[in-house]
């Protein structure tokens, strides 16, 4: 700003020197022709042509050029704003895609884990069931076997009685020389 004031100062100094020049000029010309910048002869002409040309300029600028430049600048700033919008929108979309991808990945992982667990559980259940069935079968067969063994043993025991009676009868026959009554032998062995 001080620079501007320097300019003003320069202007005033120039005005002073101009005033001296005016005096010189008047002296030179013996007060004849007026000092050109102050010569009123051409004042109307200068005002008239200044107004005409300035109006033409004003009309030209306000109707054609300034709106054109203004719209160029506005268009550019709109375009930049649009591009920035677009970029942020795309970035948002990319982020969404990324997060949905991760979500899906996690889902898939969870699902796979789930399937594994389910499969394992069902397999284990099946195995357990089979084992149980096998156990039952084994028990059943064991029971059958036990029964059979008991029967055989009973039979054997029964046979033992008969064999003992036979043996006793035979011993009696050999030693005693008589054939004992079967019922008596049985009672004696019994």
């Amino acid at each position: 700003m001080t620079y501007l004031f320097d300019m003003f100062g320069y202007g005033f100094a120039a005005a002073a020197s101009a005033a001296e020049t005016v005096a010189d000029y008047k002296g030179d010309q013996d007060g004849g022709a007026a000092f050109p910048p102050f010569d009123p002869t051409y004042f109307p002409s200068q005002i008239f042509w200044l107004l005409v040309t300035f109006f033409v300029l004003y009309f030209m600028l306000s109707r054609i050029f300034l709106p054109r430049i203004g719209s160029m600048i506005e268009e550019r700033s709109n375009r930049i704003a649009d591009d920035l919008d677009m970029a942020s929108r795309l970035q948002l979309q990319a982020e969404q895609a990324q997060s949905s991808y991760e979500q899906e990945l996690a889902d898939a992982r969870a699902k796979a884990h789930n399937i594994g667990a389910t499969t394992r559980a069902s397999v284990e259940a099946e195995i357990a069931k089979d084992v149980e069935a096998a156990d039952v079968e084994a028990d059943r067969q064991q029971a059958g076997a036990d029964a059979r063994i008991a029967t055989i043993r009973n039979q054997a025991l029964k046979n033992i009685d008969k064999v003992a009676a036979d043996v006793a009868a035979e011993i009696v026959e050999k030693i005693g020389g008589f054939t004992p009554n079967t019922a008596t032998v049985k009672t004696a062995v019994g």
């Binding site: 051409y42 002409s45 200068q46 042509w49 040309t53 300029l57 030209m60 050029f65 430049i69 160029m72």
Partner: peptide, 30 residues
Amino acid sequence: IDISFTNSSLMMVFTVALIGLWLLLSTRKA
């Protein structure tokens, strides 16, 4: 009233014409 076309008027017209030409050329492509 004397409104003669002077060398000053010529420069005014030239000034405006030059500004018009400058803006015409510089905003032509947009």
